[in-house]
């Protein structure tokens, strides 16, 4: 019980803040509770398959296979797989990090994992369709073309600026979080 409270301390503190807001500004508090509830329902409806796929990926795809597909020497294939995995997903960005953890754990190249995160955040297909309908096709296409390059540049620069020790730490950390 005590451990549970400790693990959820930020969540509990935020709930308290929300209640305080509700007491002081009922309309804002009410609204935030509504939004939180809607988002929770949305999260719970979108997230189960993501984690099922994560579990299956972890159990069935061998480290050697993953290294071949997305590892240090995977080249263009690794990049394309990273883009595809990120773009075909549905779900909020914060759901992408656990999957990124498994990809790292299995030996994917760090820049490929960053490309996966970049694709998940900006080139998700349902999001692009929605953007096209709201902002116009030209806006969507222009941003899409620019973002593909940006995602790759960000991934490579981030990886280049990390030294071996820092990268090793990230890979070790991924092992801890997953297993």
């Amino acid at each position: 019980m005590k451990m549970l409270a400790k693990r959820y301390k930020y969540f509990l503190a935020l709930i308290v803040i929300n209640i305080v807001v509700y007491v002081l500004y009922p309309s804002v508090g009410q609204k935030s509770m509504n939004i939180t509830w809607n988002n929770t329902v949305e999260m719970l409806s979108v997230i189960p398959p993501i984690f099922v796929l994560l579990g299956l990926l972890d159990v069935w795809v061998q480290r050697e296979t993953m290294i071949k597909l997305m590892g240090e020497k995977s080249g263009i294939v690794g990049i394309l797989i990273a883009f595809f995995l990120g773009s075909a997903a549905a779900g909020p960005l914060y759901a992408a990090f656990p999957i990124a953890g498994v990809l790292l754990h299995k030996g994917s190249k760090f820049s490929n994992v960053l490309i996966f995160i970049g694709a998940w955040s900006t080139t998700k297909i349902p999001m692009l369709l929605f953007e096209g309908s709201a902002m116009g096709l030209n806006f969507m296409l222009t941003r899409f073309v620019i973002d593909i390059h940006g995602i790759m540049v960000i991934a490579y620069v981030t990886e280049k600026l990390l030294n071996e020790k820092e990268k090793q730490y990230i890979y070790d950390q991924a092992g801890n979080v997953v297993a």
Binding site: Y10, S32, N39, F51, V52, L54, G55, V59, W60, Y94
Partner: peptide, 26 residues
């Protein structure tokens, strides 16, 4: 085993998820 891992990863990250969702709400 895969299901166990799926649940464990989810449970592992749930406190942060919930915190993020409440922050987004506020």
């Amino acid at each position: 085993l895969a299901m166990k891992k799926a649940w464990k990863s989810f449970e592992n990250i749930l406190p942060q998820f919930l915190a993020i969702i409440v922050i987004i709400g506020i």
